[in-house]
Design a protein around this nucleic acid. Structure first.
Ligand SMILES: [Zn+2]
Ligand SMILES: [Zn+2]
Ligand SMILES: [Zn+2]
Ligand SMILES: [Zn+2]
Lengths: 155, 155
DNA sequence: TCACTATTGTTATACTATAACATCAGGAAA
DNA sequence: TTTCCTGATGTTATAGTATAACAATAGTGA
């Protein structure tokens, strides 16, 4: 068991399921489950903490991969585009999705000390905005809901 | 009348009130209402659109002010710290607050085409995240709620 | 074989933000 | 008045984040 999203869970299973989901997604969509795609996702999955693109890059470099900025961004963007990761705007960083396969507008609890992130599938604050948006004839395409604070472990 | 937040309003009055609020705030807090503070705020107030720090800088430069990055960030940070502006994380840009003086957790509707922003005062009690946060013994210190889409004018 | 497409490699550059320190102006204390 | 302190501004340099553009490669199917 490991701490995640500020509660304990079976993280080994958590990682295995996520990797399995990416592999079968790639198969059914005709995408390649390449070494780098897998490895970048594994790095994001190691802990439930936000990682910057350049953190990823440093890890890849020590493992002997090519480590120019575009390789990190390419694979992170791939994961985000297909719903396996999210960008945390407040931190300019990335996190593995913990609700893979579910259509969702994620909301995050982010510890400013340790960068641990807990993901929720939706949040009523965005519903209020949807209401206001329809009043204004505004079409919401994407939402960012992030709460920054300190987690129990960092207090 | 001008369009703002996707609805018409008296923008001349809107600007005048905001500048007046900053001036009296500075007086009561013993802060100086300097030319640059005033000018940066005026630039943000020109339209209800998010402006990047370097957009501000370009404007200052054409007006003969010193235009090194720290001058833009210093005054933008000043406005944000005292509640007269907000940072739009999704755009790495800034916007004048439209609810000056009110304690609020703002939420934004942001047009991806024209960068026009409409600000809502979200009642933080409606955040489902707060509920989840207290379950997890997580203390929220700050929130980011942004919806990105297209406004009526850009369709 | 050939052509096509997806993926990866590489160089260069753009965009965003802050650290650190020098200078200046105004007000309070000596 | 002179000195000192504080807040504000000026300036240089650098750190951190992200993308454009194009070359090379590998696999697929005609
Ligand atoms: Zn886990
Ligand atoms: Zn998710
Ligand atoms: Zn207005
Ligand atoms: Zn506001």
């Amino acid at each position: 068991m490991a701490s995640s999203g500020f509660h304990t869970h079976d993280h080994v299973k958590c990682v295995a399921e996520a990797l399995g989901a990416l592999e079968s997604y790639c198969q059914t969509e005709g995408l390649k489950f390449t070494t780098l795609r897998r490895r970048v996702f594994e790095l994001l999955l190691e802990e439930h903490k936000a990682m910057g693109a350049y953190d990823i890059l440093d890890r890849l470099r020590t493992e002997g991969f090519s480590a120019q900025p575009p390789v990190a961004y390419r694979h992170l963007d791939f994961l985000v585009a297909h719903g396996f990761a999210h960008k945390i705007e407040r931190l300019n960083a990335f996190i593995a999705c913990t609700h893979i396969g579910a259509l969702h507008d994620p909301a995050f609890l982010i510890c400013r000390e340790c960068r641990t992130v807990s993901e929720t599938m939706s949040d009523s604050s965005i519903l209020a905005l949807h209401h206001r948006a329809s009043d204004a004839d505004f079409q919401i395409e994407e939402s960012v809901v992030e709460a920054i604070g300190t987690c129990p472990d960092c207090r």
